[in-house]
């Protein structure tokens, strides 16, 4: 066995050589002169470095510019801790809501045929095309003092705007499509045969969903939740409009970054920003891993 491998390495078979020639011929037809290649690669690398890598590096450089102690004490500040807590709470609420909605909507849309499906998907996508500021504004118009429900809320002493419910609502609006959009194409591609098989074997609807559908889409669910969570924790514009910026109460992490930055507390601002940047990096790494899993699932179903 090892001999064979050694042979094949040292003496490529005529077949392999022919293939190599063919590949070289194909490449020469499909590529550009060396100078052009180098220029394009250099342009791509420089552009991505200046516009994407450097800003990321700056965040950490600024955060640690006064040393690690200043960094840690900035994070230990009660205001920072309150912002972290609020961010986690809001993300948990909106991710939870959108997870349930995403599963329900994907079941209805991917597993059944009905007219108006494309239109419904377009409606679910709407928040992607709405400016974050407008996403906040619509809730101000509904629940603000001059809003449609403003006086009713005041009479019943219910606080939505400038409080957690408003922040959670705006965040849910902004992150609305993520889970559904991750699941609908996946479930459409998987079809309904496995579910039909389960039903014909006597499984109930819930048994079918939990035993057959969910295991098949689990990586897709994680993928949607991951992106949804990243956006929920990082949302700035929409939350900024509805939060009222009450220190220690309605400031999420991105809002606190803004406040500290405007107060020239750069180390503190960038310390919080560095946490969010790390969240982004972890999200990207996890996303890459999940995409590999999703591709594998795709290949397995290809047979």
């Amino acid at each position: 066995m090892t001999m064979q491998i050694a042979d094949s390495v040292s003496l490529p078979s005529p077949d392999a050589r022919a293939r190599a020639h063919a590949a070289a011929a194909r490449d020469s037809l499909r590529t550009e002169p060396r100078a052009v290649r180098m220029t394009i690669i250099a342009l791509a690398i420089v552009f991505l470095s200046v516009f994407v890598v450097l800003p990321l590096v700056v965040v950490f450089a600024q955060a640690f510019s006064k040393g690690i102690l200043a960094y840690l004490s900035a994070l230990a500040d009660p205001e920072a801790l309150a912002a972290i807590r609020l961010t986690l709470l809001v993300a948990a609420i909106s991710v939870g809501l959108n997870l349930v909605f995403g599963l329900v909507a994907a079941w209805a849309i991917a597993k059944f045929e009905f007219s108006g499906k494309t239109f419904l998907i377009t409606l679910i996508d709407l928040p992607f095309s709405v400016s974050p500021v407008i996403s906040g504004l619509v809730f101000v118009l509904l629940f603000g003092a001059q809003g449609y429900f403003g006086s009713w809320l005041r009479d019943h002493d219910i606080q939505i705007l400038f409080a957690v419910p408003g922040i959670a609502l705006a965040t849910t609006f902004v992150t609305f499509p993520f889970v559904a959009r991750a699941l609908i194409p996946l479930m459409q591609e998987q079809g309904t045969q496995e579910e039909e098989a389960a039903i014909s074997l006597g499984a109930s609807g819930l048994q079918t969903f939990f035993r057959v559908t969910l295991p098949n889409i689990k990586w897709g669910v994680l993928y949607g939740v991951l992106l949804c969570n990243a956006r929920a924790m990082g949302e700035f514009g929409a939350v900024s409009v509805v939060s009222g910026h009450i220190r220690g109460e309605t400031n999420t992490m991105p809002l606190l970054v803004e406040i500290l930055y405007n107060e020239y507390q750069f180390v503190a601002a960038f310390a919080i920003a560095s946490l969010l940047a790390m969240l982004a990096l972890i999200t990207l790494i996890a996303k890459t891993v999940l995409e590999r899993h999703l591709d594998e699932g795709h290949d397995a179903s290809d047979h």
């Binding site: 045969q193 496995e194 039909e196 098989a197 389960a198 014909s200 074997l201 006597g202 499984a203 109930s204 048994q207 035993r211 057959v212 295991p215 098949n216 397995a300 179903s301």
Partner: peptide, 26 residues
């Protein structure tokens, strides 16, 4: 009714054993 699908519709996340056992377990 026992139905055998054209593309089999086996549950891809279950072993052969669990596939066959499914109808008994539900």
């Amino acid at each position: 009714v026992g139905f055998v699908f054209q593309h089999y519709a086996l549950f891809r996340h279950m072993t052969v054993f669990e596939n066959v056992a499914f109808g008994l377990r539900v």
